[in-house]
Write a protein that binds this DNA or RNA. Structure first.
Lengths: 186, 186
DNA sequence: ATTCTTGTTGTATGGTTGTTCAACAGGAGG
DNA sequence: CCTCCTGTTGAACAACCATACAACAAGAAT
C-alpha cells in the first residue's frame, strides 16, 4: 500500500551507484560540480550516504578515479599493435563526457597527494602494459610506451577542448603517421 | 607620519597583479583554490577589486587564461625545427607550477563556454604557428602540427602527474624519437 | 592648501559547501 | 507476526563562497 521511502542496497552496489553519479557530475561540470549535493541528487540518494560509504567526499573522489582507470588496466593478454590502437582510441572509453571527467581528475591529481599516489601506481601499470605490446616491435619499448600514451592523451585533450579540429579518426591517423615509420605498417 | 593604508595603481598594473595572483592560486591548489579570498590575499588587495577590475571572478579567469597563452603566440618569426623543440619544451613556460595551472585551466575550458570560445581562437593560432615551422619539412604540416602539439601536451601532462617517470630531457628525447623518422635529423 | 577624480576598502548579504548525528525504516531471519 | 541489524534519511551546523555597495582615501591638479 504505502510506497517505501527508499530502497536498501548492498554496500558495494550503493557505492557503485555513487561512483557512477560522481563520474557523471565530473563529466557535466568538472570538479566544481563534484559536490555532495549534486552527486546525491544524481544518484537519487540523500546527503549522508557519501560520508557513510566513503568517509567523505575525498574518499569518493579516489574511488571515482580508480573506477575510471580500471577498464584501462584489464584484458591486455594477446593484444597486438592494431588492438593497441583500438584500445588507445576506444570511443566507449574516451567519449567526450568521459574525457571531461578525466580532465577534471587530472587537475585534481596535480594538487591532491592521495590521488597523486594512486595515479603513480595505476599509470605505471598502464605504461607497463602498453610497453608489453610494443616489445619486439621497437628498440626501446618503455620510452616508446611513454611517448605513445602521451600522444594519445594529448590527442584526446585536443578533441575534448576543440572538437572541431580533432576527431577519433583524425587522432588515429595522426597517431599512425608518427608510429608507422618506427613500427612498420600495422 | 601615518603610513598610507594602500597604494593606488593604474588599472592595467593592478589588473596584471591580480592575474598573476590568480595564476599562482591556480598553480598551488587548482581551480578549487581559485577563490576571491585566496587571490586577493595573494595579491595583497581587498576583496572588492576583482569585481571592480574584471566584473567578477569569471572575467579574471578569462584574463588569466589569455595571459597564460600569450607567450606561446609571440615571436614565431624565423623559428626552425630546433627552435620549435626548444619552445615546445621551454622549461620557463612549462615548469611544474605553471603546468598545474594549465591543468586546472583545461578542466575549466571543457566546461565553461566562454573559455571554450577563447581557447578555440588561441589554439588555432598556435597550431598555425607550429605548422608554419613544419612547412617544407613534412608532407602534411597541419596534421603533423596537431600531432606534435598533442604529443608535447601529453608529455608535459605525464611530467606534471608523475614527475618520477618523466623529465624535460626525457620528453625531448621521446619527441625526437617519433619525429626524426619523418623530419630527418635536426 | 584645497578640490576633485577615481582606485580601493571592508562590511553586509544571501547562497552554497562538507560533515555530523540522532531518528528512522527496509527487509532478512526467525 | 515479530525482532533486530544496518543501510538510509534529512535537519542542524559552522565554514566558506561571490557579489554589491556606500564610505573612504590616495594622489594629481589646481
Amino acid at each position: 500500500m504505502s510506497e517505501p521511502k527508499f530502497r536498501r542496497y548492498a554496500p558495494e552496489v550503493r557505492a557503485g551507484m555513487l561512483v557512477e553519479a560522481g563520474m557523471a557530475c565530473l563529466a557535466r561540470g568538472g570538479i566544481t560540480a563534484f559536490t555532495v549535493d549534486n552527486i546525491c541528487r544524481e544518484a537519487g540518494a540523500s546527503r549522508g550516504l557519501i560520508t557513510h560509504h566513503f568517509g567523505g567526499k575525498d574518499g569518493l573522489l579516489a574511488a571515482v578515479y580508480a573506477a575510471a582507470y580500471a577498464p584501462m588496466l584489464e584484458r591486455w593478454e594477446g593484444v597486438g599493435l592494431a588492438g593497441l590502437m583500438d584500445r588507445l582510441f576506444d570511443p566507449a572509453q574516451f567519449a567526450p563526457p568521459r574525457l571531461t571527467a578525466w580532465l577534471a581528475l587530472w587537475g585534481e591529481i596535480a594538487v591532491n597527494p592521495v590521488l597523486q599516489a594512486e595515479h603513480a601506481r595505476h599509470y605505471a601499470a598502464y605504461r607497463t602494459a602498453v610497453a608489453g605490446v610494443l616489445r619486439g616491435h621497437a628498440p626501446d619499448p618503455e620510452t616508446l610506451a611513454g611517448a605513445l600514451i602521451a600522444l594519445a592523451d594529448g590527442l584526446w585533450l585536443e578533441q575534448c577542448l576543440a572538437p572541431d579540429l580533432m576527431s577519433p579518426d583524425r587522432a588515429k591517423a595522426a597517431c599512425r603517421m608518427l608510429l608507422t615509420p618506427i613500427l612498420g605498417p600495422f
